[in-house]
Amino acid sequence: MTLKSHISGWSLFFLAAFSPGVHLQRHGSSSQPSSDSELPSEAQISRPVLQPSEAPPSTGTYLLNDRVGKPCIRATMGAEYIVTEKKKTWYFNLDPSSVKTGGNCDKETAVLSLTLPNQAASLQFTFRKENNFIYVTNVTAHVSPQPVCQGCANKTYSGVITHKKLFTAANSQSFKCKSGKLLLMSSELKIRLVPLQMQAFSVPNRDYGPKMECWADFNKRAIPIILGAVAVGLVVIALLTFQFIKDRRRPGYDRI
């Protein structure tokens, strides 16, 4: 090393020691201070994007086994999150391909949990068996979407329904509702399940048993039949009335 290079090295050392903002680096390596962009942040976590318009949700089928590997819950549904923010309505549909299924099954209680990665959204049903009937007693849900407006803070919308008897079906039967169900979770969050079919505790051959139809489906099927029967009845009454009046007006014979 020459005297000139030695003096230059010491000059650089003193410059770095007494001058703020100057950092020494070794040749062949880079030692830069880490920036905020290199650290994990909420922006890098996948968050649902709320939509201003409604679209039919994709239908998924979710199967949960008990501790011995026997199917204990089967559910088929499309799930739509309806969020109210600043007097506007926003929508988010649960993507079945991204859902992780979890839960547990006991003798009289069973839980089905549907969760997106990073807990971005969840939907949980608690089933209860009582006498010969099975129903959902608790429903919990949450969604943590991207802010719906510029400058809005990150927010989680959540809600819970407890101590209810929802989607009731007899033991070994399934509850089915093509018309769908709307659940009021909180003042800011609603969940629409459409279509919906579920069965708990007994899922023979990993399939549904006989179905118990919801009132909305029954009305859609029965009302046209009832209206048709009423229309036919009115037509028959009209024909009989016309025939009766015609017979009364027919001329007869006078007795001599």
Rank of each mutant, 00 (worst) to 15 (best):
H142L: 08
F167I: 15
V143P: 08
K155T: 03
E108L: 13
N104P: 01
S144W: 06
T76R: 01
G69Y: 01
V143M: 04
A141E: 05
T137N: 11
E54C: 05
Y91S: 07
K86I: 11
E80H: 13
T115A: 05
F133W: 10
A120R: 02
F125P: 00
V139S: 12
E130Y: 12
P145L: 07
I73T: 12
N65R: 06
E85S: 09
E130A: 14
Y62I: 00
C152V: 03
A79K: 07
G102F: 02
T59E: 14
A75H: 01
V68P: 05
G69R: 01
N132D: 12
S144D: 11
T140R: 13
I73S: 03
P56D: 05
N138V: 13
S58Q: 05
G69W: 01
K165N: 14
V143E: 04
A121R: 04
A75R: 03
K155Y: 15
K155F: 14
L112D: 01
D95N: 14
T76C: 02
S98C: 14
A153I: 10
S97A: 07
P57A: 14
H142G: 05
R67V: 06
T126Y: 10
N104C: 03
Q150T: 13
Q124L: 04
T61I: 04
K88Y: 06
S98Q: 10
G151M: 00
T168W: 11
V136T: 03
S158T: 00
